[in-house]
Amino acid sequence: MQIQTFQNPEQLAIHTAQFIIDLVRNNPKATLILTSGDTPVLTYKKIVELAQPADFEEVTIIGLDEWVGIPATSEGSCRYIVEENLLKPLKIGPKQYTFFDSISNDLQAECERVDKLLFEKGGADLIIVGVGVNGHIGLNEPGTSFDNYCHVSDLAEITITVGQKYFTENTTLTQGITIGLKHLLEAKSAILIATGERKADILKETVEQEPNTELPATVFKLHSNSYIWLDEAAAKLI
Rank of each mutant, 00 (worst) to 15 (best):
D38E: 11
P40N: 05
V41H: 04
L42I: 03
T43S: 05
Y44V: 03
K45C: 12
E49V: 14
E49P: 07
A51K: 03
P53S: 11
P53I: 09
D55H: 14
E58L: 07
V59D: 00
V59W: 00
V59K: 01
T60C: 11
T60R: 06
T60N: 08
T60Q: 08
I61A: 03
I62M: 04
G63F: 02
G63H: 01
L64S: 01
L64M: 12
L64G: 02
D65P: 07
E66W: 02
E66M: 05
W67R: 06
V68P: 04
G69L: 01
I70G: 05
I70F: 09
I70A: 07
S77G: 15
C78Q: 05
C78Y: 02
Y80Q: 15
I81E: 06
I81F: 09
N85T: 12
L86N: 02
L86Q: 03
P89C: 12
L90I: 12
K91R: 15
K91T: 10
K91N: 13
G93L: 13
G93C: 11
P94N: 11
K95W: 13
Q96T: 07
Q96K: 05
Q96L: 06
Y97A: 01
T98V: 09
F100L: 03
S102T: 00
I103R: 01
S104H: 00
N105G: 00
D106L: 00
L107N: 00
Q108M: 09
A109R: 06
E110A: 02
C111Q: 05
E112Y: 11
V114I: 15
D115V: 15
K116V: 15
K116W: 15
K116A: 15
L118I: 13
F119T: 15
E120P: 10
E120F: 14
E120M: 14
K121N: 14
G122K: 13
G123I: 15
G123N: 15
G123E: 14
D125Y: 07
L126C: 14
I127Q: 09
I128W: 08
V129W: 07
V129S: 11
V129K: 09
G130E: 08
G130Q: 10
V131L: 13
V131R: 07
G132Y: 03
G132C: 10
G132L: 06
N134R: 10
N134F: 08
N134D: 13
G135D: 06
G135V: 07
L139Y: 03
E141L: 03
E141A: 05
G143N: 07
T144N: 14
S145G: 09
S145E: 09
S145C: 11
F146W: 01
F146M: 02
D147L: 05
D147G: 04
Y149N: 12
C150E: 02
V152W: 03
S153A: 12
D154K: 13
D154H: 13
L155G: 06
A156K: 07
A156V: 12
E157F: 08
I158L: 11
I158M: 09
T159E: 10
T159F: 09
I160K: 05
T161V: 13
V162E: 06
V162K: 04
G163L: 10
Q164W: 11
K165E: 13
K165V: 12
Y166S: 09
F167W: 07
T168N: 05
E169M: 01
T171E: 02
L173C: 01
T174S: 08
Q175N: 03
Q175H: 04
